[in-house]
Nucleic acid binder design. Structure first.
Length: 578
RNA sequence: CGGGGCGUAGCGCAGCCUGGCAGCGCGCCUGCUUUGGGAGCAGGAUGUCGCAGGUUCAAAUCCUGCCGCCCCGACCA
């Protein structure tokens, strides 16, 4: 299939200085990718072979799960996006273009609009449901800051699938099928991963999982239980409502409030230093604007508010920290002295405030704080909720055991959409009961390039990439130690032809290079099996098989080498998928 | 969008402060030697010094503007 001397495979010895993470460095060094411009990459032959391997695994498993492949346009008319409401909502990540007639288009960052428009025109009855359509296509998202090579880039290959169902039960079944398909896909790609619960935004009754490849270089933090199988991303990770302390009279322990002069003392840190208290004795009062209404959110001083949780709890579309003039209006003081006592807004409190006594709050008066504040006596908290960011020393919300926080790379996402798009775009069907209903949708994405990069993050050493057999660009590389030695080159050539005849993906390194150069390149590009053809072994009628992953070397007689390799490859590709 | 840095041979970089021959390493080409972990010797080719303008006898070097890239932050699914 391929002679190294004829391949377009520009490897480099030196690590490019602007590549931060190992997958980016190695993809450049191994001649897999080259950058065209910010966040936009060309896949060279070696890189593209890996991409196609991943795509084919995805394709096989999607088909197995009953999804059908389509191919949608990358360029989409603005009208569809106006219809779904996302033309205005999506923001700057949406790359908008105009044609010669001055009509608006975008380069698709995702395809809910297109698929929904297609399906609403073609599906009329529950008899045509459920359906699951997917595609593997290039997406464009104008990322604010592309980085890490193909990990976070602007143009990228993605598999996106969309399911349409008539009933909730059926929709959940569609979701489960995709969840299982994803598990098979990432297992077959040789990845260590885990599905985690993810925030699904404010669509009622929906749920969502992210498939995270665990890697220290990951951009996302994930929380997992050391005991049960609970796992969630940071945004989603729940914190249980603490037990309320009972059995004694709180009021007895309340000290009288005391307003203290705290000139220019604003942050929690400053308050603690000034009053000689710990952050956990202070209550932080943050003023948010929630769909235009101010809300005071209380959290213990050593905790941080999780805006995703807050947004979900308040069921609002827009949520942002209030501007200074709003703070002045609501608290009557400048930023830094807000507190719950006498505040002119709704108050909600994180669970961390339960059981706090005699705490410090802002006085809603410039340069003043209040000591020994107590809820119930000094102000009323009607709403307690889980509003803060989880920490590693919190306990599992399911079983109460210890948690662990690790970093991960999001390679896949399954999301139950519900009727968000079918409603906005009027995708309905006629149900058995004769009523017109909105289709229940789900969407399911996999980042193809990111999956390949995540694999490198997880599987490499100081010499280069270590591909698993399933997505390796080639399965075998034959390295004749000296191409000018006819015995060696003839033997290598013969083996090469016999492996090709077996359908094995093999490179013959027929370059007139020194052995060391060839070994280094073979290691760098990560081919799982290297067959070295050298004079000593050949004299015994043998060649050396070296495994990239373990470094183990076996001498195999020429008569059995073909069968040995075929069997090894078969063994390594057919990984059990549970 | 804010802050910082960079832009000089295919790649990595020095030179810029203090204006005066365009340089180093790797790679590339030719020849000889070498050939089991990125060879040695000899010879050679390669530049819009990011772009535009300005100052100057003279600009890679100083000044102004622009463009591109990288990093940090903010923002965002």
């Amino acid at each position: 299939m391929m002679r190294y001397s004829e391949m377009f495979l520009p490897t480099t010895k030196e690590t490019p200085s602007d590549a931060e993470i190992v997958s980016h460095q190695l993809m450049l060094r191994a001649g897999m990718i080259r950058k065209l411009t910010g966040g936009i990459y060309t896949y060279l032959p070696l890189g593209y072979r890996v991409i196609r391997k991943v795509e084919n695994i995805v394709r096989e498993e999607m088909n197995r799960a009953g999804a059908q492949e389509v191919f949608m346009p990358a360029v989409q008319p603005a009208e569809l996006w106006v219809e779904s409401g996302r033309w205005d909502m999506y923001g700057k990540e949406l790359l908008r273009v105009r044609d010669r007639h001055n009509r608006d288009y975008c380069i698709g960052p995702t395809h809910e609009e297109v698929i929904t428009a297609l399906v609403r025109d073609e599906i009329q009855t529950y008899r045509q449901l459920p359906r699951n359509l997917y595609q593997i296509q290039t997406k464009f998202r104008d990322e604010i800051r592309p980085r890490f090579g193909v990990m976070r880039c602007r143009e990228f290959g993605m598999k996106d699938a969309y399911s349409f169902d008539a009933t909730e039960e059926s929709a959940e079944e569609s979701y489960r099928k995709m969840f299982d398909a994803y598990t098979r896909i990432f297992t077959r790609c040789g990845l260590s991963f885990r599905p985690v619960e993810a925030d699904s935004g404010n669509i009622g009754g929906s749920f969502s999982h992210e498939f995270m490849v665990t890697a220290d270089s990951g951009e996302d933090a994930i929380v997992s239980c050391t005991s049960c199988d609970y796992a969630a991303n940071l945004e989603k990770a729940e914190i249980s409502r603490p037990e309320e302390e009972t059995g004694h009279d709180h009021a007895m322990e309340y000290s009288p409030t005391e307003e203290v002069h705290t000139p220019d003392v604003r942050t929690i840190e400053e308050v603690c230093t000034f009053l000689d208290v710990a952050p956990r004795d202070v209550v932080k009062t943050m003023i948010f604007m929630c769909d235009g209404e101010p809300v005071a959110v209380l959290v213990r001083g050593d905790e941080d508010i999780n805006e995703a949780k807050l947004r979900n709890y308040l069921e609002c579309d827009s949520l942002e920290l209030a501007m200074d003039d709003t703070i002045l209006e609501v608290t009557g003081s400048p930023r830094g002295f807000a507190g719950p006592m006498g505040i002119k807004s709704r108050i909600i409190a994180d669970y961390s405030l339960m059981n706090m006594k005699n705490f410090v709050v802002g006085a809603n008066r410039e340069d003043h704080h209040i000591k020994n504040c107590n809820s119930g006596r000094d102000f009323e908290i009607k709403d307690y909720a889980d509003l803060r960011i989880i920490r590693e020393d919190d306990v599992c919300p399911r079983c109460g055991e210890k948690l662990r926080i690790v970093r991960g790379i999001e390679v896949g996402h399954v999301f139950k959409l519900g009727v968000k798009y079918s409603k906005a775009m009027n995708a309905t069907f006629l149900d058995r009961d004769g009523k017109e209903k909105h289709m229940i949708m789900g969407c399911y994405g996999i980042g193809i390039g990111r999956t390949a990069a995540a694999c490198i993050e997880q599987s490499h050493d100081e010499d280069g990439i270590i591909w698993p057999m399933s997505i390796a660009p080639y399965q075998v590389i034959i390295t004749p130690v000296n191409i000018n030695d006819e015995d060696l080159s003839d033997a290598a050539e013969e083996l090469y032809n016999s492996l090709i005849a077996e359908g094995i993906e093999v490179i013959l390194d027929d370059r007139n290079e020194r052995a060391g150069v060839k070994f280094k390149d073979a290691d760098l590009i990560g081919i799982p099996i290297r067959v070295t053809v050298g004079a000593k072994s050949l004299a015994e009628g043998k060649v050396e098989v070296r495994f990239r992953k373990s470094g183990e070397v076996e001498k195999i007689p020429l008569e059995t080498i073909r069968d040995f390799i075929t069997k090894t490859i078969m063994d390594q590709i057919s990984i059990s998928c549970g």
